[in-house]
């Protein structure tokens, strides 16, 4: 990637603490105090969720939002079983994993073709694919409902996975094309001299060089699809494969007074996202930043 923001000029290393004047040191300490206060403010809703999710039933009724005043796992159990969140987790995976794999495969294939394999009508095909970047999902979500109904694809895992994938491939293709365009042309030429077929050049020479891009796209798409609310809301009216997002919404509508299990359900919904983000925060932020700049 050659985007401005991903290859910053070597940052000046901060002077060592010992070299700082007392005044500069006080300023730095003030900065950290402010940053910590702001971080806690940003994280407060998360803390509140965890605190309420692990309260005892009695405590939730008297004092639902007091921080960490009791401990119990009963809300988690209730949400998982009675609230149906165990099933929602499975459905979220069934909707997120296949759609992410489809986006990854089609975007990588298309990105390579659009970057490196000239064929008649290529420019037109590329415009058709990236039109999805300009036209928001809103524009066609209503006709798509009736189209899916006609195809018998409402409430279907296949249908909704394909819709989720279709909302991601425009960005994905654009993103992967940029990675392939940055690779030196000489690599393919050398492999061709050695008698490699075009397919071998793609899979054995080029693909291994864009794995970082594919990783970033995978994480980004996974988060996007996991968090998607509108697609399952509209295209899964029957609720057979209700994922966490619409499941949480349903629970909110039906049992919003059950704050304990609701908090537990919220925690179950966000936990995979939080874990994934904290573990891969560099890839997530870098993928997103370069994606925003390039895509």
């Amino acid at each position: 990637m050659a985007a401005t923001t991903t290859t910053p000029a070597p940052a000046r290393t901060a002077p060592l603490q010992a070299e700082l004047t007392p005044r500069a040191r006080a300023r730095l300490a003030g900065k950290h105090a402010l940053l910590i206060a702001l971080s806690l403010l940003m994280l407060f809703p998360l803390v509140l969720t965890i605190s309420t999710a692990f309260k005892t039933e009695q405590d939730v009724q008297v004092n639902p939002f007091g921080l960490f005043s009791s401990f119990s796992t009963e809300n988690i159990v209730t949400a998982w079983t009675v609230g149906g969140f165990g099933g929602y987790v499975l459905n979220s995976l069934l909707l997120t994993v296949p759609s992410t794999l489809i986006v990854l495969a089609l975007s990588t294939m298309g990105g390579y073709a659009f970057a490196r394999l000239p064929f008649p009508g290529r420019d037109l095909a590329f415009y058709v694919v990236v039109v999805g970047l300009l036209v928001p999902f809103f524009t066609y979500m209503i006709p798509l409902y009736f189209q899916l109904r006609g195809m018998g694809m409402l409430d279907s895992l296949v249908g909704v996975n394909l819709v989720l994938a279709s909302t991601g491939v425009s960005f994905g293709t654009f993103f992967m094309r940029a990675f392939f365009s940055d690779l030196p042309v000489e690599l393919a030429q050398a492999a061709r001299m050695d008698g490699a077929s075009e397919w071998q050049i793609f899979t054995r020479v080029m693909l291994p060089l864009v794995t970082s891009g594919m990783g970033a796209l995978a994480v980004f798409t996974f988060l996007q699809n996991w968090n998607n609310f509108l697609v399952p809301l509209i295209y899964m009216p029957g609720g057979d494969y209700r994922p966490l997002t619409t499941g949480l919404y349903l629970f909110l509508g039906g049992r919003s007074i059950d704050i304990g299990p609701l908090a537990a359900g919220t925690l179950i919904t966000i936990l995979p996202v939080v874990v994934l983000f904290v573990a891969l925060q560099k890839q997530v932020t870098q993928g997103l930043v370069s994606g925003a700049v390039k895509g």
Partner: peptide, 28 residues
């Protein structure tokens, strides 16, 4: 050979985009 692989790699993508994006857009 390049053109052939190029078309092959792009067809699934165009099918998906055509059915789930372009078609409903025209319908809209």
């Amino acid at each position: 050979a390049q053109a052939r692989l190029g078309v092959l790699l792009v067809v699934p993508l165009l099918l998906l985009v055509g059915i789930f994006l372009v078609f409903p857009m025209i319908n809209a």
